[in-house]
Amino acid sequence: MIVFESSQAQIMYRTRYRAAVMVESFAISPLGSINIEYLPVRWKNSFLATRFGLGFIPGGNPTAISMVTNGGGASLPTSVTYNYLINNLRKGINRRVSLKCKSAPSKIASEWFAEIGAGATPVAYRSAESRFYSFGILGLRQQVVFDIPPHPRVVFLRANLTPSYVEGKYEIRGGISLGVSL
């Protein structure tokens, strides 16, 4: 979005969606989950994202027969992250709307964000004790914006490092997510 004030143009970032659906593997899932992402606050160069979802994790007590039939569990991953734009937005917008171009501006744009936050995931097993995971989140997100009417679509890929704490143990994990705006 470009906002004109007096004689100079001020460029302001505003993400193009409020809600998205994503598939996440590892990270805070802990194995895999489907999540809804909602952006309650959007600032000039950043936004706050909240996520909640439903996931699956194999059995709580591993056996040689099958981990799934031995009490697979359900997880409820939740997180809050702050995402800050790290690529040069001003240069990208100027390139897309330059009056010197001889063709129409590109309808596809790519944006990169650094992500930091926290999450929690309770996991309930059928045949084992429930667990509660706490996570830190450090990540990188790429959003590809398809600016095609009637409204833009955003597809994003996230890769993150998620140090966790559960039952007195610290672990370093990582994960990926793929999502699309609603």
Rank of each mutant, 00 (worst) to 15 (best):
M1Y: 11
M1F: 10
M1H: 08
V3Q: 13
F4E: 15
E5Q: 13
S6E: 14
Q8S: 12
A9F: 10
Q10R: 06
I11W: 06
I11A: 03
M12I: 15
M12F: 14
R16Q: 13
R16H: 08
R18T: 14
R18S: 13
A19P: 00
A20C: 04
A20N: 09
V21L: 15
V21Q: 07
E24K: 10
E24D: 08
F26W: 12
F26T: 15
P30L: 03
G32P: 01
G32A: 13
G32E: 08
S33C: 14
S33A: 15
S33D: 11
E37N: 12
Y38N: 06
Y38W: 12
L39M: 10
L39C: 07
P40Q: 06
P40I: 06
V41D: 09
V41N: 09
R42I: 15
R42P: 02
S46N: 07
S46D: 12
L48W: 07
L48R: 01
L48H: 03
L48C: 01
R51K: 08
R51N: 04
G53V: 05
G53Q: 04
G53F: 04
F56R: 04
P58W: 09
G59H: 00
G59K: 01
N61G: 01
T63G: 11
A64C: 02
I65Y: 11
S66Q: 00
S66P: 00
M67G: 09
T69C: 00
N70H: 05
G71Q: 01
G71W: 00
G73Q: 01
G73R: 05
A74E: 06
L76H: 08
P77N: 06
T78C: 11
S79T: 06
V80S: 03
V80A: 13
Y82A: 03
N83Y: 05
N83R: 15
Y84R: 14
L85C: 06
I86K: 00
I86Q: 00
N87S: 05
N88C: 02
L89P: 03
R90P: 04
R90S: 15
K91L: 04
R96L: 06
V97P: 07
V97A: 11
L99I: 06
K100P: 01
C101Y: 11
A104L: 12
A104G: 08
P105F: 00
S106W: 01
S106K: 09
K107G: 03
I108H: 09
A109N: 15
A109S: 15
S110R: 15
W112P: 00
W112Q: 12
F113H: 12
A114C: 05
E115T: 11
E115H: 01
I116L: 08
G119S: 03
G119L: 03
P122M: 02
V123K: 02
A124P: 01
A124W: 09
Y125G: 04
Y125T: 06
R126F: 07
S127Q: 13
S127N: 15
A128L: 04
E129A: 12
E129N: 14
F132M: 12
F132S: 12
Y133Q: 07
G136Q: 10
R141E: 05
R141I: 05
Q142R: 06
Q142H: 02
Q143M: 05
V144F: 02
V144I: 12
V145F: 05
D147T: 05
I148M: 07
